[in-house]
């Protein structure tokens, strides 16, 4: 059986990890490096590192911060926020990223996804979709941290991106983000059920049962989690224990000495 990945997510603003609500309102949570190391030691399967203002303000990504965060982390790190050139990707990889998540720039120039996949391999290129529900079974793609509507249908956009060679999809529900009321399972399923590549569900995790739901009903291949780990409401270990008991295959927590 395939192992479901639990991916703690750091939303970065300036030097801090912040907690977004509906991808907007922010609260400072802590220090990126400290949190990254804590999650690594707790048994995180990967780490998601999203600079939430780089794209919005056309600001360049803080590569130095990423370098320091990734230093003592030996699991895959996906980096997103403001990536808009092949050299941005190269720089991110150089300072510790293994994959990049691309949203805004991919929407404005889809061909970039193909170029990036050819240059760095599909395994490196993650399509980052932020989607808002429009009607039953319809979601619209947003960019710039959920601020700009695009008119694109999320499912169609995912199909197009798969054709362009992306290796994974990070799928955020703007409606659920930060609410702790559960993932948008229907949105996840609407893409994960047919996508030939892994889909990472993101936005709305309030407890381990929400994760189990988006895995079993939403067909998620991985779950991205932020708030509840930041505030110690539960640990990666307790989530994995719960999922394991529910019959979800997970990677057991490695023992640290």
């Amino acid at each position: 059986m395939k192992n479901i990945r639990i991916i703690p997510t750091l939303h970065i603003k300036g030097p801090n990890v912040v907690k977004p609500v509906h991808t907007e309102a922010l609260r400072i949570v802590g220090d990126p490096k400290e949190l990254a190391v804590r999650y690594y030691r707790q048994g995180a399967d990967e780490l998601m590192y999203l600079d939430i203002v780089a794209s919005l303000y056309q600001r360049n990504f803080d590569f130095e911060l990423l370098k320091s965060v990734s230093e003592d982390i030996f699991i895959p790190i996906t980096v997103g926020g403001g990536i808009r050139s092949l050299s941005d990707i190269k720089n991110a990889l150089r300072v510790g990223a293994d994959k990049v998540a691309i949203n805004t720039y991919a929407v404005s120039r889809p061909e970039f996804l193909r170029e990036a996949a050819l240059e760095f391999g599909s395994q490196c290129i993650v399509l980052y979709i932020e989607a808002k529900k429009k009607s039953e079974g319809k979601w619209e793609v947003y960019t710039d941290g959920g601020r700009e509507s695009t008119g694109l249908d999320a499912i169609e956009w995912a199909k197009q991106a798969v054709g362009l060679g992306v290796g994974e999809i990070l799928l955020t529900s703007i409606d659920q983000d930060g609410t702790r009321k559960g993932y948008d399972t229907k949105l996840t399923s609407a893409i994960a059920s047919w996508a030939p590549i892994p889909v990472i569900a993101h936005g709305g995790a309030g407890n381990a049962a929400h994760m189990e739901e988006v895995i079993s009903k939403g067909k998620a291949d991985a779950v991205a989690v932020s708030s509840i780990f930041h505030y110690d409401d539960c640990t990666i270990g307790s989530v994995k224990e719960y999922l394991d008991a529910k019959g979800v295959a997970i990677r057991r927590i490695p023992q640290f000495h």
Partner: peptide, 10 residues
């Protein structure tokens, strides 16, 4: 009986 590529822990 899974997605290809395999991405994750095994």
């Amino acid at each position: 009986k899974e997605k290809i590529p395999e991405v994750g822990w095994n």
